[in-house]
Design a protein around this nucleic acid. Structure first.
Lengths: 246, 246
DNA sequence: CGAAGGATTGAGGAGTCTCAAGTCGAGTGG
DNA sequence: CCACTCGACTTGAGACTCCTCAATCCTTCG
């Protein structure tokens, strides 16, 4: 329908180097010296545009690279023993995916584009080489993995203890905050994933997701038109997400 | 009551160096050269015995070290926004705890001994130094974090999709396998944690845990005497844990 | 011995799932 | 341009799992 901003700029930024990327220090190069950034810049491979539903990598494939989301959005998912799909995370621009697989050398998850997306690919062998020379880079990688673990723990707590309402509030808030960090509006945004993805991620059925979002809408907590969300009462949403019912 | 084996050997092994530790390569030093092991050995601090309920570290404290469980067992837990406790993992001998906190420099979890336990402390600054000189060691650390993430994802999937029966079967099986790896019996062991810890970890109430374990017992799946477990039908337990009801 | 914490057992209720029907919008082909 | 189909989503009614509340038992410990 209407032109999609991120897709439009994607080609324009495809050649931008790390030092000038508008994602700034959201991505890896945080607090690197200029000379170090240039070194990193030389191993980063840019411009791999993916269409909706395209897999960036699949579970079982050899782990070669990590990726920084440049535009669009991804979901990562693993298949459990009984063949069920479990979404383990959603990833927005500036965030790093592909770190699963460091342990075994094989990816344990698949990463799938939720909409037209592009990434920066960082070959891991060359990254490791580089990071043994640049201590801050090594530290940064550990930080990113640490954050991954911390957010997994948050999700674990959410899944064990919270109601459907609280889970949905948490997800909306999480996307709101991550958009805010990228300089976008914290109260008005686009949900890149389907209801069914949301349900899978939060351990709910699609019907429950639909009902809860409907209730959020009818109580004036949010405005909702399909995938477009406008948060009306941010503080109440925060209360809900924290587990304190209104 | 009766003497506790692991506690008894604890003092005896307290001075053993990494090269001779009977946990072998379960712990960090996997596939290190002998000279490298010796270097690691020199930074490891041993012999910190903890009593049941003692905290190894607390959430909010500065992150200084990682720890290898030497004997006993630990739980790690985080406090969610609303002050609720969430157990994020149980840790048995040979396993590494304390890696949360790498991201921010502060521990995000607390680690609490479930019974009399001892650990090897590995000061992280010196470990980082050492690992920039020994590439396998650096790789090993990433592996351990990768495994942590993989097991978190497994737990996330378990919490979102599985029934109480399946959750309990999974936990029993997990402990069984980890005991087996340490050379202990995979079918007969001791649960180091309380029913309430189990429930917290699996997102169930204590009553449900009790009822399910009781049902497992009365259907002949396991023998159960308080915290002592004897798995009678391992394959059926595996089916259950994989989500295929009998 | 009494108290306190952990665990078991029972009855009733709430929240979410299942099953089923129905709506909406986009894309297709006549 | 309209009917058709397909997928994503919404809405409703009933069922079931698990939670809540409460009583009781067991073990430990002062």
């Amino acid at each position: 329908m209407k032109p999609h901003c991120q897709t439009a700029t994607q080609t324009a930024t495809a050649q931008v180097n790390c030092g000038e990327c508008r994602l700034g220090d959201l991505c890896l190069p945080i607090s690197l010296l200029r000379t170090d950034i240039n070194q990193l810049d030389q191993i980063v491979q840019r411009g791999r545009p993916l269409q909706k539903q395209d897999a960036l990598y699949d579970a079982g494939h050899t782990f070669k690279s990590v990726y920084a989301v440049r535009s669009g959005a991804f979901k990562t998912l693993s298949l459990s023993a009984d063949g069920e799909e479990q979404i383990t995370g959603f990833y927005l621009p500036g965030e790093i995916i592909g770190l699963d697989g460091i342990a075994t050398g094989l990816h344990t998850n698949s990463a799938v584009a939720l909409e037209t997306s592009s990434v920066c690919e960082i070959p891991f062998d060359r990254f490791e080489e580089l990071s043994s020379k640049i201590p801050t880079l090594q530290r940064r990688l550990l930080q990113i993995m640490g954050n991954e673990i911390a957010s997994d723990h948050e999700l674990i707590s959410l899944l064990s203890k919270n109601t459907a309402d609280e889970k949905l509030a948490f997800l909306l808030l999480s996307i709101s905050e991550r958009n805010h960090r990228r300089g976008l509006s914290p109260v008005e945004f686009h949900l890149p994933m389907s209801r069914s993805d949301i349900g899978n991620f939060l351990g709910l059925t699609i019907e429950t997701v639909s009902r809860v979002l409907g209730r959020f809408h009818s109580t004036g907590l949010i405005l909702l038109d399909k995938k477009h969300v406008h948060i009306q009462d941010l503080s109440k949403l925060k209360q809900l997400a924290a587990g304190r019912q209104d």
